[in-house]
């Protein structure tokens, strides 16, 4: 078990090192810009994975928490003289409180019912973004959102934003990995496998689900706030049902319960439309197809597939080494 833990730390450090070194080798700012969005989407996918992959509870309303983070931050900093950092904290706090309150009735529901209820919640929030024009600017959006800054250091270019977003993302990834191998992570996975048995073992399933839903909303809202302050313009179109489905697809493609899988899923779904122009028209067809095919044939996602092939290759190498010896 100790070896497993050490290996995990090693993998994370390696991953973090690569992430931190990438900007040195990348010349064009366009790629850095894409990587900033991969970072934000990874945050969101990890947030959904905590709920869906760990606890087995679906949410089709993740875009709403993302949007709440973005809009609360955006409104506070454009309509009031609030410091962007404070706005980020307030935004994350508000989204968590809302998630905690609606979490109790909503997480009583299971499966399709939960999907429908979270979808309904997402659409209500989306309608509010569109209709409260005085606050949000309605469908034409909210512009002029200030950048975050640390003293004289302003996060207004791609390189700075890259480090800002990725420090946050790496932090959340590490915390999520820690969580998975803890008392709380086990309780969540137990609920996923058999809620009845988990409760009989003394796990307060309802409270646990509400907690992880709240954490998920908290992280999504931070992602929203970072998004608003880095691109300085937001409009409701970024926070609709389609984006919730996109997040779902990221998590499923990468692998339920796998944090690196969420990174992989976020990377693929962010890159594809950037580099394959044709993809833009085909996006939802492909998302739909991916959701179906991965669920049917590769339930552990791409990371699961990769791990499996590594294992097979390792055994082959081991086998041939033994044959030679």
């Amino acid at each position: 078990m100790m070896i497993k833990e050490k290996r995990q730390i090693f993998i994370f450090l390696l991953f973090a090192l690569v992430v931190l070194l990438v900007p040195i080798f990348l010349k064009g700012s366009y790629f850095l810009n894409v990587l900033v969005f991969i970072g934000i989407n990874t945050l969101l996918a990890v947030a959904l994975n905590l709920l869906l992959g760990y606890a087995g509870q679906i949410s089709l309303g993740q875009a709403a928490f993302f949007g709440l983070g973005a809009y609360i931050s955006g409104i506070l900093t454009t309509r009031f003289p609030v410091d962007p950092w404070l706005a980020l904290v307030v935004a994350a706090g508000c989204a968590s409180v809302l998630a905690f309150v609606i979490g109790f009735p909503i997480l009583k529901l299971k499966g399709h019912y939960l999907a429908m209820a979270t979808l309904g919640f997402g659409i209500i929030v989306y309608i509010i973004f569109n209709e409260t024009v005085d606050w949000t600017g309605g469908p034409s959006g909210l512009s002029g959102i200030p950048n975050l800054r640390l003293g004289p250091f302003v996060f207004d270019n791609d390189r700075n934003n890259y480090y800002l977003v990725w420090m946050m993302t790496l932090g959340v990834m590490l915390l999520s990995i820690n969580l998975s191998q803890s008392r709380i992570g086990r309780a969540l996975r137990a609920i996923n496998d058999s809620e009845v048995a988990a409760r009989v073992m003394g796990v307060n399933a309802r409270m646990m689900k509400v907690q992880i839903f709240t954490v998920s909303a908290f992280v999504s809202a931070i992602a929203g706030s970072l998004y608003a302050h880095t691109i300085t313009f937001i409009s409701p179109a970024s926070f609709g049902f389609n984006f919730s489905v996109e997040l779902l697809t990221m998590v499923i493609i990468g692998g339920l319960g796998s944090i690196y899988g969420s990174f992989l899923g976020a990377t693929i779904l962010t890159m594809l439309p950037e580099f394959l122009r044709v993809f833009r028209d085909f996006d939802i067809v492909i998302y739909g197809l991916m959701l179906i095919l991965i669920t049917m044939f590769m339930p552990a996602g791409l990371i699961g597939g990769i791990e499996m092939s590594i294992k097979i290759i390792a055994e082959k190498i081991k086998g041939s080494a033994e044959n030679n010896a």
Binding site: G185, D193, S194, V196
Partner: peptide, 30 residues
């Protein structure tokens, strides 16, 4: 009713849920 995706040891560790009390915060930050 086992927790099928978890190891045998982890299954029993869930049984110790009520005998431990670390919250979500201390678990995430180790």
């Amino acid at each position: 009713e086992l927790f099928g995706q978890m190891s045998v040891l982890e299954n029993v560790m869930v049984g110790l849920h009520t005998k431990s009390k670390s919250g979500i915060f201390s678990c995430a930050f180790k």
